[in-house]
Design a protein around this nucleic acid. Structure first.
Lengths: 208, 208
DNA sequence: CGCAGCGTTGAACGCTTGTTCAACGCTGTG
DNA sequence: CACAGCGTTGAACAAGCGTTCAACGCTGCG
């Protein structure tokens, strides 16, 4: 009986979100047409309005879905008892993996500002929560001396930028797997690029 | 006599590009209307077509202009005789400055893919040239042992992502000046975040 | 079999937006 | 003063797109 059944309504909604996310990434919110989103699923555009009130709601649901996934990840990482650098590394690895393999390479990249204020505010609040969580980890690393001193807000923005930007150049058919990209980014963003020139270690390093 | 003269044609074109760049950044290429671009300059949209053949050409000119500026910067940095880490630092500082203070915070961020193939290819070729130049500097630093070994392509993408992403959160009225942002980014992206745990400096050159 | 309702269709509408174009004012020149 | 031409206007057009809606088929239930 189960196989005879067509896709359940909830699944269908997710299909639509995936198709929409891919279309929004390629063409932008305004550039992607409702018809384009529907055609990719071999349904008519009128049918989309059975599942969503309008195009804006689809965009909103895309962001909501991405944030569900990312905030769950953040909670996970926060809860594990490891050191800040391990947390940050794990966060970056998982973020890249989710972004490329689960979220159609479109998490926070698509035109937020296309949303009208009431919806926009809700998304921004959650995105800020993610940013704060990221900064907190960075701050802890700086406090512990594991990370070089600096402005955790700027570092957080830099990390988010580096990772989100992947969606602009990532090619699934390219030479780098999402796994390899994650490793390379974690190495650079956590481990640092410049080798400290025999830095006179500040007395008793808490690190290690 | 000179002041009586209205703006010369070439200046007017640049005004249009600035207005368009700002509009494209806020709403995206498809989201920004030609009328919106014109109104900001207190001209009618019909008038825009005296200066540009169509909307696409405006987008193209925006990218062309940004690339002119950035490639000139790259040449400059390449030519100075400093070490790779100094070059990278200078490149990031100047990039941030140009991006925020000169280019309406919209260099490579606006929908490239909205361009049709012939124009698109020309832009991509130049953008790739910039990427290659950046990677070359990074590679030199790795060869020299100044930078930790790694994949220069990935590091280059990470740097570009971090910097270009600034346009998504930058607020001219915010607490951080473009100068301060540049410094913070250069510190992190060049200097590295994690303190090397008393790494045994490999005495010898490139190796490893 | 008949009924109900979910999921779907496809045509139609109305609005927005990119683009065109004939006409106009202004300025400097002969 | 007449003329030429650059820069500008504003109305008009055509196409695309988001959205609506009445009608239809199918499936499972009574």
């Amino acid at each position: 009986m189960a196989p005879a059944q067509t896709l359940a309504s909830a699944d269908r909604r997710i299909d639509i979100l995936k198709s929409a996310a891919a279309a929004f990434r390629r063409r932008g919110y305004h550039g992607a047409s409702v018809d384009e989103i529907a055609s990719a699923l071999e349904m008519t555009k009128g049918n989309l309005y059975y599942y969503f009130r309008n195009k804006e709601e689809i965009l909103y649901a895309c962001h909501e879905y991405s944030l569900d996934v990312l905030l769950a990840l953040l909670d996970d990482v926060r809860a594990d008892g490891s050191t800040p650098d391990q947390k940050l590394r794990r966060l970056i690895l998982a973020f890249v993996h989710l972004l490329l393999d689960e979220l159609q390479a479109t998490a926070l990249t698509i035109d937020l500002q296309a949303l009208s204020p009431p919806l926009l505010d809700k998304i921004i609040a959650r995105r800020d929560a993610f940013d704060r969580g990221l900064r907190e980890i960075i701050q802890q690393g700086m406090d512990a001396g594991t990370f070089a001193a600096g402005n955790p807000k700027m570092v957080g923005f830099a990390v988010m930028g580096a990772v989100n930007w992947i969606t602009k150049w990532y090619d699934p058919a390219g030479p780098m797997t999402s796994e390899a990209i994650g490793q390379a980014f974690a190495d650079y963003l956590v481990g640092g690029l410049t080798r400290m020139p025999a830095l006179p270690t500040p007395t008793a390093p808490a690190a290690r």
